[in-house]
Nucleic acid binder design. Structure first.
Lengths: 142, 142
DNA sequence: CATATTCCTATCATATCACATGGAAATTAA
DNA sequence: TTAATTTCCATGTGATATGATAGGAATATG
């Protein structure tokens, strides 16, 4: 499997935040209930999104999380690259291809590179706004 | 990681067989030595290729494996679909999307389906012959 | 202060991966 | 026929990633 639940849940968190369409902080508890996912697991995921500056969090009463940008300004790639351990389709491509010493002579290496580019382009040409519109027809974004 | 060593090794086996450009059976021992991969591991991989009718094997002295078709008639998809446990980029898409009960309402499902199609198209539009030519400029195929 | 909520650091069960071991069956050459 | 070769078949194993869970410290509100 390429994209793990971790990355998929991250996208669902972002969609949920966008759908609330609020300038208030949204408690993770609410997101976990709506999405029917363990709050503790979501916690570890949204932490990565905070560190990656995709969302911001505030502690204490009235705290929670909120988006930092408009949803058309988040690409799916932005979200996945933070939450997935690797977006390379093959191990040869990790660490800029330093991982494989056969890279220079390998007959399959250019092929994997092309596959990687194809996937990366696909993921970085879609925004959070695209996902919202795709299903609702509406526009939740500011 | 998306494509495991299993699938990558399978492609290297197929390339190796094509490069021998022979109507004789090629012993797996030779392939393992040339590719510097454990023969026993390759054995379990090439078994899947035999069962999938991509190659044929013969036992005993003078035995080995050989391709059944011209290499322009093998797509990379053909090879990977046999050797990888799943080519679906996300779990939601396994078993024709039956795996996920949220599929009908999920805002991300159409997106994953598109990603899957993009990848599948990429993999099924390249043949073994393409990989051989890409690196050597020559044509090993009949 | 009491409560809500994020942050931080562990731990754990399960599955998959990459590979190894041990042999049975078949084919050919001598 | 015998020995050598080689595919076929089943099962075992250590390492790693994944998908969680647990407990508590820090911080903000009222």
């Amino acid at each position: 499997m390429f994209i793990s639940t971790r990355g998929r849940y991250a996208i669902r968190i972002m969609i949920d935040l966008a759908e609330q369409n609020s300038s208030d902080f949204i408690p993770l508890k609410d997101i976990a209930e709506r999405q029917d996912i363990s709050e503790k697991y979501l916690e570890s995921i949204i932490n990565q999104l905070v560190k990656g500056r995709l969302v911001t969090g505030r502690r204490g009463k009235g705290g929670g999380y909120k988006l930092l940008k408009n949803c058309q300004d988040y690409t799916i790639y932005d979200i996945l690259v933070l939450t997935e351990t690797s977006l390379a389709p093959v191990a040869c491509l990790d660490d800029n291809g330093e991982g494989c010493r056969r890279a220079t002579t390998c007959k399959t290496f250019p092929f994997w590179k092309e596959l990687d580019q194809t996937i990366t382009q696909f993921l970085s040409h879609r925004t959070l706004a695209d996902l919202l519109e795709e299903h609702t027809g509406g526009n939740y974004c500011i």
